[in-house]
């Protein structure tokens, strides 16, 4: 485990978020932080508020109160547009499945991440070559990446393209929401190998959410979401 540096990759304090939609709930997080360069597995069943937590960290939704910092930047200080820009530049996101624009090629899907992120784009000389280097390292044949629409790829291949997209331009933080749940056991292991290797190469902090404890051995730290967040369901407060 790395030393806890002065600036945490992610830090939440006294955060409270209320969802007023059809099934209202309230999420409270007193204190949760991830050190820079750390790999953390966040354990939680569905409904434990993990998607909401990830949306908060990514700045897609804003809390009513409390302080969220990513890489030392206070998200509340940013306008909604600036948060979008910040997310693009500093966070790579991998979803459970359906990560890709199905009509576009894998290559375009990867390059699209750079379109919104000038800082990540600035770290790369030739985006196309870099995208192909990454997909190559992730074991995807170039012909498939360049020519085929993403919908023609297998689920495992799509997840690996999502990794390449999250990692291109080396963002400080990778957020992965159950990226292996749609893969079988063998594919899970090789997927995680690749993810870890590439995240390490990019010096990125990794936050992964899963309900599968068995994955924990690879990570620096295992956190049970139940210990960090408190969820209240029912009528909106």
């Amino acid at each position: 485990m790395k030393e806890n540096t002065a600036i945490n990759a992610v830090q939440l304090r006294d955060v409270s978020f209320t969802w007023t939609g059809r099934s209202p709930f309230r999420l409270d997080i007193e204190d949760f932080s991830i050190a820079s360069g750390e790999t953390v597995l966040l354990l939680g069943e569905s409904g434990s508020g993990k998607s909401t937590l990830l949306s908060l960290i990514c700045g897609v939704i804003a809390p009513e109160q409390g302080d969220i910092q990513v890489g030392g930047t206070r998200l509340a200080d940013l306008s909604s547009g600036a948060r979008d820009q910040f997310r693009a530049n500093h966070i790579g996101v991998i979803f459970q499945q359906f990560n890709l624009l199905s009509y576009a090629t894998a290559l375009d899907n990867v390059l699209l991440a750079l379109h919104f992120a000038p800082e990540r784009r600035g770290r790369i000389g030739n985006p196309r070559a870099e995208a192909l280097r990454l997909t190559d390292a992730l074991g995807l044949p170039d012909s498939l990446v360049i020519n085929a629409p993403a919908s023609a790829l297998s689920v495992g291949q799509q997840q690996r393209v999502a990794v390449a997209r999250a990692l291109i331009g080396a963002p400080a933080l990778i957020v992965a929401d159950e990226p292996t749940s749609s893969l079988d056991a063998d594919a899970q292991a090789s997927f995680l190998d690749l993810l870890f290797a590439q995240a390490k190469e990019a010096n990125s902090t990794l936050l992964m959410v899963s309900h599968d404890e068995r994955l924990g051995a690879r990570f620096d730290r295992l956190v049970d979401l139940g210990n960090v967040a408190h969820v209240e369901r029912g009528q909106a407060a």
């Binding site: 979008d84 359906f98 699209l112 991440a113 997209r165």
Partner: peptide, 16 residues
């Protein structure tokens, strides 16, 4: 929705 969520996650703003 999926397409839009992906774009949002990549940093696309509402205006995009």
């Amino acid at each position: 929705r999926r397409e839009m969520a992906i774009l949002r996650a990549l940093g696309a703003g509402h205006t995009t």
